[in-house]
Simulated scan of single mutants.
Amino acid sequence: MSQLSGNPGSSASDVLRYTAFSADPEGGNPAGVVLDASGLDDAAMLAAAAELGYSESAFLTGTGNRAYTIRYFSPKAEVPFCGHATIATAIALAERDGPGDLVFSTRAGTVPVTVTREGDELRATLTSVEPQVTDIAPDDLTEALAALDWPAADLDPALPARISYAGARHLVLAAATRERLADLAYDFARLEAFMHRLDLTTVQLVWREGPAVFHVRDPFPVGGVVEDPATGAAAAAFGAYARELAIVPEAAVLTLHQGEDMGRPGTLTVELRADDSRVRVSGTGTRIG
């Protein structure tokens, strides 16, 4: 494990490594997890995330009773909410303290998480903050496509572009074919500038395989990485998008496959409930090495 030091005089904190949305350490999305970040300041947390190099790392403080304050840092900046690091942290806590209910206070709001044991695996389910789906201006969509080098003709007209929020903002763009989704070679600097201007965390690229099965990819240049292998926050945002546009029933369970094109396959389960506008995202997780 790496050792971190916060402000002078603070105690060292161990950085744990977990993957989320896969029971295989070689799959899913890796996250750094610091279960006691009480001795770390902002600069130390950012430095730790940058040194580790994962798309996000989570830093936890709390007073017990399974309620915690959690902060998330990419290698370049703090982000308001990160789904895969939430899942990873919940799995780490469940290994230490046992399965059950947790409450995480994030910059985006309160996120309840439940961890259950299914055979030899732990599965964590987060409940998003209140989601919101908005239109994207035509000029902004044109710029996004130019940065991605995607012709507009390659989009799926049945899944129109929107900006969706469920803790962080994501632009949802749907590819008409699996081949289009697989061919991802974008202008890093141009897309990063575009995303900063619209305050986007990722671009959620989607291809629909079946009524409730989707393949997704998430460019993440604002976080300092080309692509996120499995993105819980974007999955929650996509669930809100799919319900808002009536792409799926009001109550539905969606399966999102992500990371296959990166060699880190993961599976994200998105649950929509008719009596609750919030979105639930669940997946397995495991310790890395």
Rank of each mutant, 00 (worst) to 15 (best):
Q3D: 14
S5F: 15
G6W: 03
G6D: 10
G9I: 11
A12H: 14
D14A: 15
T19S: 13
S22T: 05
A31D: 11
V34Q: 11
L35S: 13
D41L: 06
A44C: 14
M45S: 04
M45Y: 00
A49W: 10
A50K: 15
L52T: 14
T61W: 00
T63C: 03
R66T: 12
A67D: 08
T69A: 03
S74P: 04
S74C: 00
P75E: 04
E78A: 01
F81R: 00
F81E: 03
H84F: 00
A85I: 00
T89R: 04
I91S: 05
E95H: 12
R96G: 09
D101S: 11
F104H: 02
R107I: 07
A108G: 08
A108Q: 03
G109L: 05
T110D: 06
T114W: 08
E118S: 12
E118M: 09
D120S: 12
D120M: 06
L122I: 09
A124T: 00
S128Q: 00
V129W: 02
V133M: 09
A137Y: 14
D140L: 08
E143H: 13
E143S: 14
A144S: 14
A147M: 11
P151D: 11
A153S: 15
I163F: 13
S164C: 15
S164D: 07
Y165F: 15
Y165H: 13
R169V: 05
R169Y: 06
L171D: 00
L171S: 05
A176Y: 03
T177A: 01
E179K: 07
L181A: 01
A182Q: 10
L184S: 02
Y186L: 01
F188M: 02
R190A: 09
E192L: 04
H196P: 08
T201Y: 13
V203S: 02
L205C: 11
E209K: 07
E209F: 03
A212Y: 11
F214T: 02
F220R: 09
G223K: 03
P229G: 09
A233W: 08
A235M: 02
F238P: 01
F238M: 06
A242T: 01
R243F: 03
R243S: 05
A246P: 06
E250M: 07
L256M: 04
E260H: 13
D261V: 04
D261K: 06
M262T: 07
M262S: 08
M262V: 04
G263H: 02
R264Q: 06
R264I: 07
T267W: 10
L268I: 14
T269N: 09
V270Y: 07
E271N: 05
A274P: 02
A274D: 12
D276Y: 12
G283Y: 13
G285D: 13
R287E: 12
G289H: 15
